[in-house]
Design a protein around this nucleic acid. Structure first.
Lengths: 226, 226
DNA sequence: ATGCGTTATCGTCGTACTGACGATAACCGT
DNA sequence: ACGGTTATCGTCAGTACGACGATAACGCAT
C-alpha cells in the first residue's frame, strides 16, 4: 500500500492590523474554483522540510525570513477524492512584505483575514484552524511574534502582532516593560523611527532567545475599544 | 510518486521512578537485531490516528487509558534503505501497568530508561528525543502528567511523574499547594491510601482542565525549540 | 514659537504566584 | 509509647503582573 504525499502550508501574516492567511483558488479539479491552502506534492528525492520551504518560496518569493515549522499530518482515508493522500501541513509566519504570486496549480493567491475565511477545499479548514491555534499558543512562550515583523521593528509593531493574532488589546506600557525585561526577546539597535506620528520609537531586532521565560500568557487583555 | 507510510510510536511510562521508553528488537532486516520504536504500516483504509491507536493496543493491550497525540512526521529521502518511507510519529504516555507484548514484526519489546538508551534504527533516535522533549514541555502547561498515573493517584505519585520526566526534584509542599490550587488539575475522591509508609495520602483523579493556568514551569533549564 | 494631539517610555502600587522552609498530622514498625 | 516517615498546612520574602499616573519627544496647526 502506498500513498501520495503532499505538503500544505498555513501561511500567516499581519496586514493592516489583522491576522491573514494565504489562500489560493484552485485551477483544477477537485474543488476547482474553490479556496484552498497552497501546497503540492513532495518530490521523489526531497525531504519534507525542503518541500515546504520550496512551496513557501514559490508562493511568496521570500527566503530565510519569517518562520517555518511542521504543523501536523492529515491522512484520513476520504480526505481527497483522488485517492489516498497524506498531507504534511506546515505553519509559516511571514512579514507583510511580499505580494502573493500565482503558483503553477493555483489560479490566484490572496491574503484573507482569518475573521472572513471562506469554506476551504479538502480538510483545509481544519488544518488552517489548527495552524492559527498553534500560532496563538506559540506567541505565549516563544519570541516568534518577531517573525511577522521586518528585520527592525518597534515595540508597538510587535504589540500589534500580538493584538492581531490574539484579537485583543494589550496595555502598551505593560507590554513594553515585559518585552524589554524578558532576556533575549528583543535587542536594541540604537536606531529609532522618524517621521511617524508621536514620539519616535526605538528600533529592535530579534533577540537570541528561543523560548520566553517567563512566558507572555494570554491574560490581562484590555477590554475591546468602544 | 508514491510513498510507503508508517506510524511509529514513542511510548513513555514511569518505572521505578525513571522515565522509560518502549523499544522493540527488530526481527527482520533492515537493522535486524537492532533496537527501534514500535510501529507499522498504515492500513489501506485506516486513518493515521487509528493506526497509532491500533499499534498502541497491539503493543500494550491497553485501550483508552493514557494519552496519545501526534508528534510529527519524518520523511527524509534516505531514512529507510527499503525506499521512500514517510513515518508519522505519535507520542503515547501510559501508566505503568501493562507488560510489553511482542508484536508481529518485533522479536521483543521492553521498557528502557531514557538515561540508558541504545542506538536506534532508522532515525528513531531523533524521533524519540523529539518525543521526550515534547512530553517534558507538555507537563508544564497541561495536566498530562496524570496520564502516567493509574485512575486514582496521590499528589506524591504525580510529583514522582514530574521528577522522573524532568529529572529534577521538586519541593513536596510547594508542589502540593500548586496542584491542589490550580483549578481543574486534580479532583479529590475522598478516599485515601492505607498500608503505606507514613501518613496516608488522599487519592485524586484527573481534573477537567486541558491546560494549566498558571502553568507549572521548569525553572532555569531552557528547552530546545524545534 | 506655542500649544495640542499623539505615541513612547518610565514609575508606582497592590495583588498573585512562587521558592524556601518551619510546623503539625497521621500513619508505620518496634 | 516512641521514633521514622510521609502528608498537609502555614509563613515570609521576592518576583511578576495588571491598572494606571506621569513624563518625554515628536508632528502639525495656528
Amino acid at each position: 500500500m502506498t500513498f501520495a504525499v503532499t505538503v500544505d502550508l498555513v501561511m500567516l501574516t499581519i496586514r493592516e492590523g489583522a491576522l491573514c492567511a494565504l489562500l489560493i483558488r484552485r485551477a483544477i479539479p477537485p474543488y476547482q474554483g474553490g479556496s484552498a491552502l497552497p501546497g503540492g506534492f513532495v518530490l521523489p528525492d526531497e525531504d519534507l522540510d525542503d518541500a515546504a520551504e520550496r512551496e513557501l518560496v514559490e508562493e511568496t518569493g521570500l527566503r530565510g525570513a519569517g518562520h517555518l515549522e511542521q504543523l501536523g499530518s492529515y491522512g484520513a482515508p476520504g480526505r481527497d477524492p483522488r485517492g489516498r493522500v497524506v498531507t504534511i501541513a506546515y505553519l509559516a509566519l511571514v512579514p507583510d512584505a511580499p505580494s502573493p504570486r500565482a503558483g503553477s496549480d493555483a489560479a490566484a493567491a490572496d491574503w484573507v483575514p482569518v475573521a472572513k475565511l471562506p469554506e476551504l477545499a479538502f480538510d483545509h479548514g481544519r488544518i488552517l484552524a489548527d495552524g492559527i491555534e498553534r500560532a496563538r499558543a506559540k506567541l505565549e512562550y516563544t519570541p516568534l511574534a518577531a517573525a511577522f515583523c521586518p528585520p527592525e521593528f518597534t515595540i508597538a509593531e510587535l504589540r500589534g502582532v500580538y493584538e492581531a493574532v490574539w484579537d485583543t488589546r494589550l496595555d502598551p506600557r505593560n507590554f513594553h516593560r515585559k518585552v524589554t525585561s524578558t532576556d533575549g526577546f528583543v535587542e536594541a539597535t540604537g536606531r529609532s523611527t522618524a517621521g511617524e506620528r508621536g514620539r519616535p520609537a526605538q528600533l529592535f531586532t530579534r533577540g537570541a532567545a528561543t523560548v520566553l521565560y517567563p512566558p507572555l500568557l494570554r491574560r490581562g487583555q484590555l477590554p475591546a475599544l468602544s
